[in-house]
């Protein structure tokens, strides 16, 4: 057990969620973070889907990493990712149809998510299956965390709801409060994301350029 969660594995699992977040530090996966975060529910589903796909594609590629010829490794990685994306997409259609309609093409476009290819190339190709699997989960959750924070503010301020439930009381609206329409547009997602990056860089001095 101690080996299963050695220091290295712990790092692989936890640093992407906090200090080395794929979205706020490496600035990957921005397009989908803008596209699916106007409501909280699709953002959660999207985050979980990406977590499952990164984890299992990392696992599979790590198992076969020594047999993949170096020249065609990108194609092999893409085949694995594409297969997993198709599975996730079909599962969503079967069990969460409404959300999959809201996510529309963005589930299919997970295949182009830079985080996936980045982790396969940078981690799974040179590490064992178990730590690769943890690394995949860590990066997926790091991505999901940012998506959920962005979606939380956008849905709360843009629609006055959370997960579809009304949270801003009617008395506010009666007193003249109005939902912020800009929050539902992609530019505001970018600005919230920028604030998160700002916050993280202000907290971690070693992320700042000299």
């Amino acid at each position: 057990m101690s080996q299963l969660l050695s220091k290295k594995n712990k790092e692989a699992l936890f640093t992407p969620i906090g200090k080395n977040n794929p979205v706020t530090v490496q600035v990957l996966g921005i397009c989908s973070a803008l596209a699916v975060t106007s409501k909280l529910e699709p953002a959660i589903v999207m985050g979980l889907s990406v977590t499952v796909i990164t984890a299992f594609s990392n696992l599979v590629i790590s198992f076969i990493r020594k047999t993949i010829p170096n020249r065609i490794r990108i194609i092999v990685q893409l085949v694995v990712v594409a297969a997993l994306v198709t599975v996730v997409s079909e599962v969503l259609k079967a069990f969460a149809y409404d959300v999959s309609v809201q996510l529309s093409v963005y589930v299919g476009l997970i295949i182009t998510n830079c985080i996936l290819m980045g982790r396969l190339e940078a981690y799974a190709m040179s590490n064992g299956p178990w730590s690769s699997f943890l690394d995949g989960i860590g990066n997926g959750l790091g991505y999901a965390k940012i998506l959920i924070i962005v979606a939380f503010f956008r849905e709360l301020l843009g629609s006055g709801t959370l997960l579809g439930f009304k949270v801003i009381p009617d008395a506010f609206y009666a007193a003249g409060y109005a939902n912020n329409g800009l929050m539902l547009m992609p530019p505001m997602a970018l600005i919230i994301l920028a604030c998160l990056i700002w916050y993280q860089r202000a907290r971690n001095k070693d992320l700042q350029e000299k």
């Binding site: 109005a178 912020n180 329409g181 800009l182 929050m183 547009m185």
Partner: peptide
């Protein structure tokens, strides 16, 4: 611009 896109009704 912020007002215009955020609160078009006002």
């Amino acid at each position: 611009a912020f007002l215009f896109f955020a609160y078009p009704a006002s």
